[in-house]
Nucleic acid binder design. Structure first.
Lengths: 191, 191, 191, 191
DNA sequence: AATGAATGAGCCTTCATTCAT
DNA sequence: GATGAATGAAGGCTCATTCAT
């Protein structure tokens, strides 16, 4: 892999989190990454290129982990809980990346390079849907409007995670791993 | 009431949502609000002053409504559901204001005028806590780490609302009002 | 005399010395003088009006004192020494006014209201010339190009005064009063 | 040597003398020097950086000449006269630079980059003092408070020079070169 | 005479991007 | 692939001045 590119991405992530994307200058990234202005443009074409690269890397890294976790689950309950735990774990292990993805999702989704992201996202959602569908059919999971599942499963963890990432919680995100996983299962199970 | 100030705030909100705070220029706000650059500075001191004013107005407007709704509830269940419904209603009725508050909370919380916000927030949370405390004591609501309640009650609605505000849902936020209210109650009730 | 005008002039002088004329805003003068923006304009028409008023007051105050001192002198030597001492005394007693006059002379002399100043100056110089002329004729004072007298008489005191006003001398201006007066006399006396 | 820097300094000096530092805009300097705004900032960091550079160049250029002149003098009288003549000559040959140094000395001495100037100045004054000290010891020059020498030697020339630079004299500065040199010597010689 | 809200032209400075080396 | 000097458009903000009260 490319040393310069790694340095640039790592430096840019730091800056983007500290000062925000708009307030981060190419000179800031140069100072933090140690890579010259010319090289930054050589590798990423322009400032937005760095933003998009960071975002796509982050999202696909997270999706991949989630799909692996899901593939190892054998029941509806295991699957739901795996999704929540994997979500929490990824945020816990990559807090800056998570902050970045939450904060700048819209920036990428409104950019010109959004195509790649949308495609990734559709593929990922399809795989999730395929995994859960049989359990809904078999009535182990409540029949609900599809887009509500995400809210019920991920909503609570996400709410807490956002506050944890902003350093506004007294307890650790990871402490409630089991609690949110169980709550997610209870929220959508039948019976 | 002050005509200029209202115009500036309304115009600024439009711009901030359309282009983002950083990409909105004072000239943009002048064009939309019809108030001169000098007057904008006269009333808000600088660009960030507008951001803070919009944010504080939004948050306190929402808090006030929530507290009124709560004061009319007579049981734990009614209270929890009122909070969720009020949350959904406010977002549904003030989508731009909601978009703004979600997106720029951190901007205000890291600004120099954060004091006023923190104070408002503390007072609001204290009133919520006071309302729910008796029900926890009487064991009608599960005993949980305090900061988890918010995640369980608001998390799902918030997740959906964020996607609804970004125009990424097929269904309307308001359609699921009862569903999320009921889910919130089930998530924290005892027994 | 007019209370507001006095306050404005006094406040403006402070500001002009502290921050320079260009960096002093009308708001600064309002804050220091306690007189409203509107009143400042009512009394002085515009910012430059304050500058000119301060300057003309300062110069004519100094000229008047010098002419009085001269009128009490009875010999060439007394006259020359009186001029130097009077110069030093005025600066010693009105250091801010002196700083202002030295620093902003050119600003007034290039302004549109320069007429009044030029007239004052011509009249003053004529009176000085009239006083000294007889002594030059009688050969008690060296015959020199007229504009050299000022340099020889005032030059040394002025050099020192400028450094004293800038707080760059170790000794007090007033200490050398006699020394500079005597040096001035020696520089232009005959024999 | 650096072409851009030279052009910027030359253009800036013209503007500063014509309109004053405060009234000179970066755009003025760009127009006169032909160097882009960005480059001006690249080389001088900000507007004040140009002022400081001009000032330091001017002062050190003058000091260097004075020290050379002094090193070629062999008696107290020659030294004193050399200082005065050198002073007059430098002003005569570099009138704009002289105008600038006289007018904006305080601006530099109160700026943040004043250190370099103070150091230069101290070194220069030490060399002057070292040159004259033996003659004072040998009683060829009057014993006077040290800071008075400057006033007596340079004061008259400076007074005249200031008026000559302001175009307010009928005669040329250079015409009185010998007169002021001789007066300086008479003012401080013993006997 | 006094007040201070409103105006808008204009300035310093920043910064993404280019390009010659 | 790497470098960093040069560019110039654009934005936040200031401030002298006006004017209705």
């Amino acid at each position: 892999m490319n040393k310069s590119k790694e340095h640039i991405l790592a430096g840019a992530l730091k800056c983007f989190i500290n000062k925000g994307v708009e307030s981060t200058t190419i000179a800031d990234i140069r100072d933090v990454s140690g890579v010259s202005v010319g090289s930054i443009y050589h590798h990423f074409n322009n400032k937005n290129g760095i933003v998009v690269a960071l975002f796509l890397n982050g999202v696909s890294n997270h999706s991949a982990r989630q799909e692996i976790a899901l593939s190892e689950a054998n029941t509806a309950k295991e699957g739901v809980k795996a999704v929540v735990k994997c979500y929490i774990d990824w945020i816990d292990e990559n807090p800056d990346w998570a902050r970045f993805v939450f904060r700048y999702r819209s920036l990428v989704e409104n950019s010109q390079q959004k195509e790649q992201h949308e495609q990734q996202k559709r593929a990922h959602f399809k795989r999730l849907r395929d995994w859960f569908f049989p359990y809904i059919e078999r009535n182990e999971i409540k029949k609900l409007p599809f887009e509500v599942y995400h809210a019920l499963i991920i909503g609570p963890s996400q709410d807490f995670a956002l506050r944890w990432l902003a350093d506004k919680t007294k307890t650790e995100l990871i402490e409630h791993r089991e609690l949110y996983a169980e709550a997610a299962w209870q929220a959508i199970r039948t019976g």
